[in-house]
């Protein structure tokens, strides 16, 4: 970090590309929250994450950029799409996507953005760092992680373990609720899709619930 002010005008090609990527990221992020189709929201999120990855690339943070592609575009979006498929969310256009808390949510979002922008501008407005090729390569990052940040790295494994066990517990279909009648006879049961494509047989304890019902018993009912 240096505080030597570089020439900001005329903007270099990298700066122009970076700004354009920022516009793409912002625009697709807005589409994520305004589109009426949930699946399209997930796909716009791909564009948003891709633009972010491009931004990292322009800043020579190569490794972070490809991690962004691998984890966010590759894994997180798949997880979100599965989340959509698991709930009873409608797949086409849906009118009821707008929450009643729009004003509150917008206020909180604008407030958070204002705080973040203020902090970044106040803290880093006069801090410049030269971009060097290889500065964000895997070796540099690895040296940083295994020299200075070993404890957060190990703590991350515990976090992943906890989330994995949580996902397993939530998705296990062989744990029955204490009162099975309340779960199986709920108001949402008759709207089970006409032909569930799931080849899985009913659970081994033979409680009579169909595959569709056991699948939906663990997830939110307020999707549609």
């Amino acid at each position: 970090m240096t505080s030597q002010v570089p020439d900001l005008w005329p903007p270099s090609a990298q700066e122009v590309v970076f700004l354009l990527l920022g516009v793409v990221a912002l625009g697709s992020a807005l589409l994520v929250v305004t589109t009426r189709q949930l699946v399209h929201a997930a796909l716009w999120l791909v564009v948003c994450f891709g633009a972010l990855a491009g931004g990292y690339l322009v800043l020579t943070a190569e490794f972070v950029a490809w991690v962004q592609v691998l984890i966010y575009v590759g894994a997180i979006v798949v997880l979100l799409l599965f989340g959509i498929m698991l709930t009873r969310a409608p797949i086409g256009r849906s009118a009821g996507l707008d929450s009643g808390n729009r004003v509150t949510a917008a206020t909180v979002a604008v407030g958070t953005a204002a705080v973040l922008v203020t902090v970044v501008v106040q803290g880093f407005a006069t801090a410049y760092t030269p971009l060097e090729p290889g500065g964000g390569a895997a070796a540099t990052l690895g040296a940083s992680i295994f020299r200075s940040w070993v404890l957060p790295f190990e703590a991350l494994s515990v976090l992943l373990l906890a989330a994995l066990i949580g996902a397993i517990v939530l998705s296990r279909t062989d744990i029955r609720p204490a009162n099975p009648a309340a779960d199986a006879g709920g108001p949402a049961a008759p709207t089970t899709p006409p032909h569930p494509p799931d080849p899985a047989p009913p659970p081994a304890d033979g409680s009579g619930a169909t595959a569709g019902e056991t699948g939906s018993g663990r997830v939110s009912r307020d999707g549609g």
Binding site: I71, A75, F82, G83, L86, A163, S171, D198, G215
Partner: peptide, 20 residues
């Protein structure tokens, strides 16, 4: 459109864990 079963979620999440 059909709702998929929640057990697939674990496999997706396992993929996320191994990607990380």
């Amino acid at each position: 459109w059909a709702q998929s079963q929640v057990r697939y979620y674990v496999f997706t999440y396992l993929y996320v864990v191994f990607a990380v």
